[in-house]
Design a protein around this nucleic acid. Structure first.
Lengths: 252, 252
DNA sequence: CGCCCGCTTGAATCTTATCAAAGATTGTGG
DNA sequence: CCACAATCTTTGATAAGATTCAAGCGGGCG
């Protein structure tokens, strides 16, 4: 479903910008054919059903995964059983860089998922022989770090509308990076997932979507597909802290 | 000031946990003497005054810095001129991994700072010859990624008391990692910096500190030095979403 | 000694969380 | 193929907490 062209079966893929590259370079496939083939030799292809838990927080992780198709969520469960979603991961994303690594959280498939499975042992020895591969991992990590910083920035927004707008903008951006169409934004996750990602209640998420629709800023075919119809107002929602409570939606 | 033992003049230092190491390993110095010496060969030592801006967001960065002593803040300035602090960086931390890298934000010294300056060009060629160094950088990045995820988690807390408590806990943890004493928590940054880091107003920060003091949970010598005197109640503030508005502070 | 900047405190407004319940949707089993 | 059940989503009222605006306090630096 919604298969991206990014992972085309030629082997594991990593997408990121080269931080030492030119200023405004776009995210791109970092691994060359040879590297992908070499990694493919270590990998097996596995599948997960929708809703299936792939990792549990704190569990011993003996393999990393590289998503081919589908979407997963990475989350932490707090003491009071509330959940915080750390990230949504899509095609070409990597998770499970060891339990001590950046996926010290649980992972669950929110759509059917196909992925390469890479044993960490084999992966690590591959690193020692291949400085180029290691460098690409550094690029990917820097990319993820920036992504997480952006998540943190979204979380500082006070208004629900601002958070939801920035979230939609993010999804749109990720679709573009993956080379998909960008007119329709695809929301594979549940409202409660969005709530847990944005640090707000499900009700607030629902109301924010309602507001955006009522004001004519977005139009939704169904729960999972949404289109931005008033881009200028949408951009105001994203960029500003002070949101006009009921700005006329008349075309400027 | 408050110089840590971590950066002892033997050359650049990186502190992190090995994500492929044992489950509960503590953060430690990753570089060995030889690596530090080799990096020291590339580096020059520079100093910055308190309040001095080291990088401006989007500026061309031709060098990375490794902090020896002092504290800096990394921040982004939004369209409406409001600021969001991405991270506070201490001894052994690294910033400026290129403009495209994870420090695509401005950097400003909040205390006097001494640091190693490493030209990215030399650094990059060093990477190609030294897979071990590259691996350590990966460890550091994974460490920073988790740190940033934790920041995001703090930002999801609704109550000011919870945010401030988690922030104090973080500072305490970082002091411990650096090998400093942990009874007194040192706050080098201004209240407004804390506000910008936690996504709340300065007033809310001030009131939260006031509350913690009034309730006898913390005791402060001055604006910059604070001690946790009621640990059990403090831990409740940190761990819980539902904070008892005026829980008796009587020793259980 | 005085000014500037940072910090604290107070009162009104506003947004969201929370509780509660009804309306959709999905998936399952008869 | 339809009906039921469980889950997800929306909608409504209330209240708690935060932001905002405004003013007073304090401390450091020239």
């Amino acid at each position: 479903m919604k298969a991206a062209v990014s992972n085309d079966g030629h082997g594991p893929a990593i997408r990121a910008v080269d931080p030492w590259g030119s200023p405004r370079e776009k995210a791109r496939q970092l691994l060359n054919e040879e590297e992908r083939a070499r990694l493919a030799g270590l990998a097996t292809i596995v599948q997960f059903r929708k809703g299936e838990e792939i990792y549990r927080e704190g569990q011993r992780a003996d393999a990393a995964f590289n998503i081919i198709t589908g979407v997963v969520k990475a989350y932490k469960t707090a003491a009071d059983n509330s959940k915080h979603i750390t990230a949504f991961l899509f095609s070409s994303d990597v998770f499970g860089l060891s339990e001590g690594g950046w996926c010290a959280n649980s992972i669950k498939a929110i759509t059917p998922v196909t992925a390469y499975r890479l044993p960490v042992r084999a992966l690590r020895s591959q690193f020692l022989n291949d400085p180029g591969l290691e460098f690409h991992v550094i690029c990917k990590l820097i990319h993820d770090l920036r992504q997480t910083q952006h998540h943190a920035f979204i979380l500082t927004r006070r208004h629900a509308l601002s958070k939801i707008s920035m979230f939609l903008q993010l999804l749109e951006y990720l679709q573009a990076v993956r080379g998909e169409q960008t007119t329709i934004i695809y929301l594979p996750m549940k409202r409660s997932d969005i709530a847990e990602y944005l640090g707000m209640s499900v009700e607030a998420v629902s109301r924010a979507f309602g507001d955006l629709t009522t004001r004519g800023i977005v139009k939704s075919r169904d729960r999972q597909h949404l289109e931005i119809v008033d881009r200028s107002t949408f951009d105001k929602m994203v960029g500003d802290t002070s949101i006009s409570p009921a700005a006329g939606s008349t075309t400027q």
